[in-house]
Amino acid sequence: MDMAVLRAHAHQVLDDATIPELPGAYHGKVRDNYDLPDGRRIIIATDRLSAFDRILAAIPFKGQVLTQTARFWFEATADICPNHVLDYPDPNVVVGRRLDILPVEIVVRGYLAGTTATSILTMYRRGEREMYGVRLPDGLKPNERLPEAIITPTTKAFDGGHDEPLSPVQIIDQGLLTPEQWKTLSHYALALFARGQAMAAERGLILADTKYEFGVDKDGRILLADEIHTPDSSRYWIAASYAERFAAGERPESFDKDFVRNWVAERCDPYKDPIPPIPADLILETAGVYVRAFEMITGQAFAPPSPDEPILERVRRNLAPYFSG
C-alpha cells in the first residue's frame, strides 16, 4: 500500500471503542471488551499502539489487521485446537466464548532469539543451558534454529509484576495446571506452532516464535483465546534473507513495526516524560508495515475500510443486534 493511499485513510482510526449500549465493559490497552449476560464476550480491536505502559498513538488499520490475521489463523488451525471464536460481526470485532484464562503464559520458540529477560537468547548469553525444563546445547549462535521447537512458559504477571520462567514440573507442583491440563496445552501449543511454521514457509516467512493464551470454558475444555500468529504476538522473519544475514551475524529481516516506539525512546524517557508530538508520516509508515504483514502472512489483499463511514459508527451499526434492551 503506497503512501498516497495511506494518507487518504489517515483520518480513519479507531482510538476508542466505548459503546454505552453494551454491558460488562472492560477497556484494555489495545482491546475494548464487553461481557454479555449469556457468557459471550465482544472483543473490539482498536488502533491504539501501546508501549512503555502507555498509549503512544493510534495506527490506521492496526485493529483490523490484527483481527483479520487472527481470523485467518483461527480458521486454519481449528482442526488442531478448539478456539473461543463464535462470530465476526465487523472487521475489527470478534465475538467469543468468555473463558477463565489459565495462569501460565505459553511461548513456543523455534530459534535462539529474543531481547527480554525471560527470552532464551538473553538467558543463553548469561551462560544458562538448563531453562524451562529443557537443556540447550553449547555452541548455538544468536538467531540460530533450535534442534526442535520448545515451550518456554512463564507466570502471568499482574499489577505490574514481572513474568518468571517456569518448568513443567514447577507448573504442576505449584498447582498452576493439572498434569492433564499441561499435557493437553503443550500438545496444542506445539501442534499450532508446527502448522504456523509450515504455512509461513509457504509464504516466504519464518515463524521464529509466538505467544499463545489458553482458557477453560464452563465445561472444563481448554480453548485457544486472544489472538494467534499475528504480527503483535509473533516474531516473523523474511526467509529469503535469513541465511545470508545469519552467516554475517546480523539480525534477521523482519516486519519492523517499532518506528513510533523507537522514535519516542530516542527523544525522552517514555516512562516519565510527556510524549512529544509524533510525526504523521511515522504513524503512516507503521500502518504500512501492518498492511504488508497481513498480506504476506495470509496471502490475501487487505481491504481498507470505506472512507465514507467513521469506523466507530460502522462498529456500532454492526454490533446493534447485541445491544441490551
Rank of each mutant, 00 (worst) to 15 (best):
H162C: 06
T184F: 00
F294S: 07
L36Y: 02
T115C: 06
I59Q: 05
T115H: 09
T46M: 06
V104Y: 03
Q170S: 11
T298Q: 06
L223M: 13
D269L: 08
R314W: 07
I206G: 02
T67M: 12
S233V: 15
Y271W: 11
S167K: 06
R221Y: 01
A320Y: 13
H162F: 11
P60G: 04
I151C: 12
I101F: 01
G249Y: 05
L14W: 11
E227H: 14
G325H: 15
R267H: 11
N262C: 01
Q174S: 05
I43P: 00
E213D: 13
L207S: 13
I59T: 12
D87P: 02
L312Y: 03
A4E: 15
T118A: 12
Y26A: 14
G114Y: 04
S241Q: 10
P37S: 10
Y111L: 11
Q64Y: 07
A191D: 12
E21R: 14
N83K: 02
F74P: 03
R54N: 06
A76H: 10
I42G: 01
E227D: 11
A320E: 13
I283D: 04
H9F: 08
T67R: 11
D269W: 08
L224V: 01
G127Y: 07
R251Q: 14
T77Q: 02
D87R: 15
S234K: 04
G28H: 13
S119Y: 05
N92M: 04
W182Q: 15
A200C: 09
I278Q: 07
P153D: 07
A208N: 13
L121R: 09
Q12P: 02
T77R: 02
A78M: 06
E309T: 15
A280G: 12
T77Y: 02
R54A: 08
P153T: 12
R221A: 05
P279E: 05
E202R: 15
G39H: 08
R221L: 00
A303D: 11
C268N: 11
R317M: 08
D173V: 12
P20Q: 12
A113F: 07
Y242R: 07
D163G: 10
A320C: 13
G133N: 04
K62V: 06
G139C: 10
N92R: 09
R97T: 09
E244N: 06
L112I: 08
D2N: 15
Q170V: 09
A117G: 09
R40T: 10
A117V: 11
P20F: 10
D258S: 15
L223D: 01
M1K: 10
D100V: 04
A149R: 08
L146P: 10
W237T: 04
R125D: 01
S50T: 09
D273F: 13
S167Y: 07
D209W: 12
I19D: 00
G175K: 13
K211R: 13
K257A: 08
V289D: 05
A194T: 07
G175L: 09
P252D: 11
P137I: 10
R129F: 03
I278Y: 06
P137L: 10
G114K: 01
R126F: 03
Q197M: 12
A78V: 00
D2I: 13
A191W: 02
G160L: 01
V216R: 14
V95E: 01
